[in-house]
Write a protein that binds this DNA or RNA. Sequence first.
DNA 1: CCTACCGATCGGTAGG
DNA 2: CCTACCGATCGGTAGG
Lengths: 224, 224
Amino acid sequence: MTKPQASSPRTAATPPAPSPRRRGRPPKSQADPDEGNRRRPLIEAAARLFRAKGFEGTSTRDIAAAAGMRSGSPFYHFDSKNALLYVVVQEGMAFAAQSQKDALARLPEGASPHAQLRSLVRQHFEVLHGPHADFIPVMLYEWRSLTSTQRQDIAATKDAYEACWTPVLEALHRQGALRADPATARLFILGALNWSVQWFNARGAHSLDALTDQALALFLGDVP
Amino acid sequence: MTKPQASSPRTAATPPAPSPRRRGRPPKSQADPDEGNRRRPLIEAAARLFRAKGFEGTSTRDIAAAAGMRSGSPFYHFDSKNALLYVVVQEGMAFAAQSQKDALARLPEGASPHAQLRSLVRQHFEVLHGPHADFIPVMLYEWRSLTSTQRQDIAATKDAYEACWTPVLEALHRQGALRADPATARLFILGALNWSVQWFNARGAHSLDALTDQALALFLGDVP
DNA sequence: CCTACCGATCGGTAGG
DNA sequence: CCTACCGATCGGTAGG
């Protein structure tokens, strides 16, 4: 029972009382930790449903219900359904960028371009199929439902994420392991990986490591 | 001014009069050639709009308007919005299968597996980006909006289309040109090609032939 | 956060 | 095929 204080208006000590919240525009800052706690289930439900049914195919009522709320409540936390999509995509991209940074930092000093590519591929699979896996697929497949302003806001992080692959592919190209033009190769490689969202089953026969081996074998003629 | 006969009820000679058509279930057979003529613009508008805005993001009113009809008219020709999606996907798959058959038939007797793969890749790009290009992308990206019955109806053709790649990849694997497992390679390769829908611009710098060269270079270490 | 509600839009249909 | 319409659902809001 954590649903007390029916409507006691602004009296004395009501500790978990709903502090005077302005309507419509909830704080992005975590000033009130409780705000964040209630945003969380909405964001996660939205990510899961947007991935499963698409942005247009998901109603805000679906999201509210999945988060254990009533139909109007999401709009206390988010200005619009679209703002919810933006948060999902934004969070997904932040996670992906961090994951990439960690993966590269984990490499030993002077690792070969070959090892670098393996690391990038493996972490990309993690982002697509790992524990946080609803977020980036939503970005990939619901991109068109973002406004152009929202796309621009994400673009910097997204471009940096993709640009990270280029020097690795260029090095592999110079040493002859990659024959295709690096810019086009990057598009094909990311496409091949991104499409795995359509067919890869995390509970299937292959692990993400095995998948990485196969990808490297395909792109670099690498024998696992 | 091609919008005459306001409401002249069934008098004498009214040549373009709407022949007594039954409601709800229009003929799939081309018994009445005019029927087919009016279905056509609906199918093409649907394909284009489904591709541009998604199935859920497209209203039947959008489709009707794009075909020059009023809002209720699509339902004279199709039972439902979903039936229209099915026709688009079905037609796309039929076109793809025919295109694949033609491409293989065009190959000289005893063509190398290498040449066979090139041919398959090239014709797949044609299906994705050529003149008939709205249909297969709709299948690829709106698959979830098909009913399970509809998916099953398409599955045979789709499976045959994909299976066609397997012997080619197996031959390449045997001769050492392809190091990845052929089944996984097929998924990655088709994914890389399918993803090009997201970034390839037909009016851009690269032709479909150039794209094919790059793909072969990437997958087989082929020098263009 | 809930209740109660609004206007808009949607897929689809009756009847001609 | 059009006109006119229906019931359902949708995103979102007022007010507490």
